Amino acid sequence: MDKVDYKKAFKELYQPEATPKIIDVPAMRFIQVDGHGDPNEPGGEYQEAVEILYALSYTIKMLFKKEQAPAGYVDYVVLPLEGLWQVENNEEFDGTQKEKLYWTSMIRQPDFVDEAVFKIAVQLTRRKKPHLTLEKARLVTFTEGLCVQCMHIGSFDEEPVTLEKMKHFTENNNFVFDLSEERQHHEIYLSDPRKGSSSNMKTVLRYPVRALCSEN
């Protein structure tokens, strides 16, 4: 059985162009971990969240190499790390005040991953990595809906330039940004910041929008 690479199978979600586009994002299943504060803090809350997500995701992937696979199982490439970001009062995203950030770090899971599979993965991961606070993790179905999306190429600190381009595109096409507690700034990390130059990093940027009502 060939492995499914979701980044290639769903290019509209993971390989957008460097020009903004409106997209209706479908429901998907994720393991998520919430947190607050600077994601760059060594040994901090965000670093543990990322370790939890990858530990559970790879445990699930390897689980059915030995165990009987559930209905709907496919072999697959583990998906990239993603993040939902917001600041207090649902203001426009500002990554320069990192200590004030609230975030949800997450990795998408194939549809066959249900609560039973997730529970097994937590049990197995706890045996291998008892230092991780696995109680922070949850399995959710997340529907993002209408968004504007664009590929950002460069460092994270240069994102405001791409976000401004997305905002102009949104306004020129009769939409507005639509941030709320439920709808947040979204990033998908296609590059490992530890490898290569930051100028070549690829990050999918996604912002919730809503259509403006047409005047009669």
Results as ranks from 00 to 15, higher is better:
residue 1 M to N: 09
residue 8 K to R: 07
residue 12 E to F: 14
residue 16 P to I: 01
residue 17 E to H: 06
residue 18 A to K: 15
residue 21 K to A: 08
residue 34 D to I: 02
residue 34 D to C: 05
residue 37 G to V: 01
residue 38 D to C: 05
residue 41 E to G: 03
residue 45 E to H: 04
residue 46 Y to K: 03
residue 49 A to E: 03
residue 50 V to M: 06
residue 51 E to Q: 15
residue 52 I to S: 04
residue 67 E to Q: 11
residue 67 E to W: 10
residue 71 A to H: 14
residue 72 G to T: 08
residue 75 D to G: 00
residue 78 V to E: 08
residue 83 G to A: 09
residue 84 L to M: 04
residue 88 E to Y: 00
residue 89 N to W: 05
residue 91 E to L: 15
residue 96 T to H: 11
residue 100 K to C: 05
residue 102 Y to H: 11
residue 105 S to C: 06
residue 107 I to A: 00
residue 108 R to A: 14
residue 109 Q to S: 03
residue 109 Q to W: 03
residue 111 D to S: 14
residue 112 F to Y: 11
residue 113 V to Q: 05
residue 119 K to D: 14
residue 121 A to F: 08
residue 122 V to Q: 12
residue 123 Q to G: 15
residue 124 L to F: 10
residue 124 L to Q: 15
residue 125 T to I: 12
residue 126 R to Q: 11
residue 126 R to M: 10
residue 126 R to K: 13
residue 127 R to D: 15
residue 129 K to W: 09
residue 131 H to R: 14
residue 131 H to Q: 14
residue 134 L to R: 00
residue 135 E to H: 09
residue 141 T to K: 06
residue 141 T to A: 04
residue 144 E to N: 01
residue 146 L to S: 07
residue 146 L to M: 09
residue 148 V to M: 01
residue 156 F to I: 09
residue 158 E to S: 13
residue 160 P to A: 01
residue 164 E to N: 15
residue 165 K to Y: 00
residue 169 F to T: 04
residue 170 T to Q: 03
residue 171 E to H: 10
residue 171 E to S: 08
residue 172 N to Q: 12
residue 173 N to L: 05
residue 176 V to D: 13
residue 177 F to G: 07
residue 180 S to Q: 06
residue 184 Q to M: 10
residue 187 E to L: 01
residue 189 Y to H: 00
residue 192 D to Q: 02
residue 196 G to S: 04
residue 197 S to W: 10
residue 197 S to N: 15
residue 199 S to V: 14
residue 199 S to L: 09
residue 200 N to P: 10
residue 202 K to I: 01
residue 203 T to L: 00
residue 205 L to W: 03
residue 207 Y to Q: 13
residue 210 R to H: 11
residue 213 C to P: 13
residue 213 C to R: 10
